[in-house]
Amino acid sequence: MDKMEKYIRDGKSGMTPIVKTVVRFVMGIIFIFGAYVVLYGHLTPGGGFAGGVILACGFIILTLAFGKGLALSKFSDKWASIIDNSAALIFLTIGFIGFSGGYFFMNILGKGKEFALFSAGTIPLCNIAIGLKVTASVFAVFLTLSIFGRFVSKLVDDYEDDTEKE
């Protein structure tokens, strides 16, 4: 019995085993599609924003189906904030490197061959940076909101306890 099997059999957290099994098979496809949309953003429809939100949706579906424990062990909020900040810095750095050729955000790398994956200079690099940033920040917001939900119920309990004492 591997680790995922244990998560699926666990009845306490998350949704029913049917949902968990389906999510287990769909997860890989979602992540591959998100990575494809980010990497091929300069050739096909998509780009950093759409791909990043798709990747974040993959993590969110993991959280909703399996509960918080599994998602936090795969991609914790600390890593989310680190990736968020560093991706923003990477994007800014790409912009500043453009100064070596003349102006801000100049496309200094070679254009490459048409319709090739490694073409269009700095655009794929920018796409990857933006994709990482959007993934991390959207997932961090979702984590903050969902973790906070526990506190609302807890606070309401505290409030009721106080009123009972009075």
Partner: peptide, 26 residues
């Protein structure tokens, strides 16, 4: 395209303010 993603960020901010208000005033 940029406007849609900004809308998502602003929505998260507004919902967090709402949850804060709900926590305080019920």
């Amino acid at each position: 395209l940029t406007s849609i993603v900004i809308g998502l960020g602003v929505l998260a901010l507004m919902v967090s303010i709402c949850l804060r208000l709900y926590e305080k005033y019920k």
